[in-house]
């Protein structure tokens, strides 16, 4: 599922690189001098204890925050500032830590909202539902139904999302992100607040998205077990500084990581 424009990226190439990025809010340093990269087709995890700067990092990638320092290169294009809707246009989709759905809409409409950038027809034709606008609507509905099938949420497509249980809301949110046909999909704590069963489902979907659509995935997670099972490579942040980067096995045996998670006497 690759966006039609932009240079072709082959598996293993660097899709996004973060180079010496620093971010502070007033006097508080959230991230200082962090560098790492995300390769095409991999599942990349960003972990760290509370306040490590994980969500800030995601917000930088997605354009919500603008770092004071450093360069972000996405698909070979370097940038320092980008607005969130431009990031979306470039092929970056995301989910949120506490589900951020459009509460007044049905599951179907939420996922259709993910197609916003793909719909080109004039609104006057859309209002009248005739001609090319109707054909376009049908085509997008078709793509959305595929995603609904993929996520196994057929029965709830007409339900207002505010009435759905948390696990299903998370799934609808994933559906909305998938509807954007992103090249890079960011998950902000996809398992937070879930029970074991829901966690297993969500892990399955993340792996399936990665395999089935070939989408590159970056995820933030608290649950170490989940991260180690899912991801190809892990970067560890602590107090806004990168303390480790490597395969799950490497990271797990890294002394700095163990200290950060368990705490050491200074």
């Amino acid at each position: 599922m690759r966006a039609p424009d932009g240079p072709p990226v082959t598996s293993g190439d660097v899709l996004l690189s973060i180079d010496n990025v620093s971010l502070s809010f007033g006097g508080v340093k959230a991230i200082s001098g962090v560098s790492f990269d995300i390769r095409k087709g991999e599942i990349r995890a960003i972990i760290g204890p509370n306040g490590a700067g994980k969500t800030s990092m995601l917000n930088i990638i997605n354009g919500f925050y603008h770092p004071q320092q450093g360069i972000i290169t996405f698909k070979g294009e370097a940038r320092t500032r980008m607005r969130p809707h431009d990031a979306a246009d470039g092929g970056i989709a995301r989910t949120f830590q506490n589900v951020a759905l459009f509460r007044g809409m049905s599951a179907l409409d939420n996922i259709m909202a993910g197609r916003t950038l793909k719909m080109k027809r004039n609104m006057f034709w859309q209002m009248l539902r005739i001609g090319p606008a109707l054909a376009e609507e049908v085509e997008h509905r078709h793509r959305v139904e595929e995603i609904i099938d993929f996520l196994k949420i057929q029965e709830i497509r007409r339900t207002p999302v505010s009435r759905l249980p948390y696990g299903l809301q998370k799934r609808v949110e994933l559906g909305r992100a998938l509807a954007m046909e992103p090249e890079l999909l960011l998950f902000d704590e996809p398992m937070a607040g879930m029970n074991i069963e829901e966690k297993e489902d969500m892990s399955r979907f993340i792996l399936d998205v990665n395999e089935h659509y070939g989408t590159t995935i970056a995820l933030i997670e608290h649950d170490m077990g989940v991260v180690m099972d899912l991801s190809d490579r892990v970067v560890v942040l602590d107090h806004g500084i990168k303390i480790a980067d490597g395969t799950p096995a490497e990271v797990k045996s890294n002394q700095a990581v163990i200290d950060a998670y368990l705490g050491v006497a200074h």
Partner: peptide
């Protein structure tokens, strides 16, 4: 109207 951040994340300016 429902969620500013989520709307921006799907490409709405």
């Amino acid at each position: 109207a429902d969620d500013h951040a989520a709307a921006q994340s799907v490409g709405i300016s």
